[in-house]
Computed example of a mutant assay.
Amino acid sequence: MLEQAPAIRLGVFLGVLLTLLALEWLLPWGRPRPLGPRRWPGNIGLAFAGTLLVRAVAPAAAVGAAAWAEARGFGLVPAVGIPAWLAVPLAILLLDLLIYWQHRVTHAVPLLWRLHRVHHADPELDATSALRFHPVEILVSMGVKMAAVAALGAPPLAVLGFEVLLNATAMFNHAAIALSPRMEAALRLVLVTPDMHRTHHSEVRAETDSCYGFCLPWWDRLFGSYRAAPAAGEAVVIGVEGWRTPAEQRFGRLLLQPLSQAPVSSVPTIASAAVPRRSEA
């Protein structure tokens, strides 16, 4: 199965992406998206560039790190003697916790925020927003993940399962779909939902710096970063002030954005001027 890991990831990715894009048409979140698909070349281009960069630097990536550790009996899992039936779900849980804290750090460290800001600067949300990460951030994230996988001695199957799950749930919680209140409340107990994650994409800084989870919602509640909804509700302003114009969504501009100061925004905001916003700093 592990030899087929790239094909498995690609198959699930395409299936989930196409399903969510269809649901965005059938069950749309009630907000206009004037740029819509015009953002897709930039968002998808970043994901493709990040994949090529990781393949060039670490071809086997996280699953390869897990196979390396397993072949040498390296890491916490073999050292403690955790059985496979427990090691797989435990590794998935701990890796999700790692991603939560890694995400928090990218908001707290200015240099990392400049890279991560590319993701937050998307002025609209849909399933492709989950792909919009700067290639350098993708490479750094993979390095952290590989180190954690090796130290943990996570089974390769667990790492593959985690990567597939994280990718699918990230696209789900960025999707511009409207869930019924009952379904939203039920899903929020076990998954980060689109409504929950929209709070994280608010331009208001206190809201941007909350709801860091990508897959499991429990870490935000446990570590005090959970917000049920943005203060503006459905009128929440998405993105980072100064980066919402169509020109800033082009692939080349997205690649260079971490090196740039914010341009003057041509898009008005309805958020209160008294509320601190996430800026280019």
Rank of each mutant, 00 (worst) to 15 (best):
V236W: 12
S210Q: 11
P156L: 04
L90P: 08
D220R: 03
P135V: 07
P155T: 00
L157F: 05
A22E: 11
W85M: 05
I270L: 11
L152D: 10
L187V: 02
R38L: 15
A7K: 13
A61R: 10
W85F: 13
A206Y: 07
E203I: 15
L26G: 09
R114C: 11
H197V: 06
A168Q: 05
G45Y: 00
A274Q: 11
P276G: 07
P28Q: 13
R9I: 12
T19A: 14
V16W: 01
G30V: 09
A232V: 11
S266M: 13
P181Q: 03
S129D: 11
R117V: 03
G81W: 05
G233H: 06
L111A: 15
F133I: 02
G143T: 07
L98S: 01
H197N: 08
A69G: 08
T19N: 01
H103E: 14
R221E: 07
P230Y: 10
D220N: 09
T245G: 14
G11P: 02
V63R: 01
D122A: 14
A69V: 06
V149G: 00
L222T: 11
R188C: 02
A229R: 14
V63Q: 12
V12T: 11
T208Q: 14
V57Q: 09
R114H: 08
A176P: 01
V275S: 13
W219T: 09
C211H: 11
G75Q: 09
A49T: 11
V190R: 01
W68Y: 07
R114Q: 12
V12D: 04
Q261I: 09
G81Y: 09
T19I: 08
L27Q: 12
S202F: 14
A62E: 15
Y226G: 13
V54E: 11
G161A: 13
P34R: 01
Q249R: 10
D209I: 01
Q102G: 15
A176C: 08
V192Y: 04
Q257L: 14
T208Y: 05
I44W: 00
S225H: 06
V54C: 15
P276Y: 11
I99E: 01
A130L: 05
W101E: 01
V118R: 00
A262I: 13
N43I: 10
A229V: 11
L26R: 15
L94P: 10
I92P: 00
G73M: 06
A170K: 02
V159N: 00
A158L: 01
L112N: 02
E70Y: 06
M196T: 12
I177A: 06
L27Y: 15
T51E: 04
F172P: 00
M142V: 06
E70F: 02
L125T: 11
Q4E: 10
A69M: 04
F48S: 06
A71L: 08
T269W: 06
A79E: 12
P276L: 05
P181A: 07
I44L: 09
V109G: 03
Y226L: 14
F223Q: 12
P230C: 05
G143N: 01
P89T: 04
L98G: 00
L259Q: 05
E163D: 12
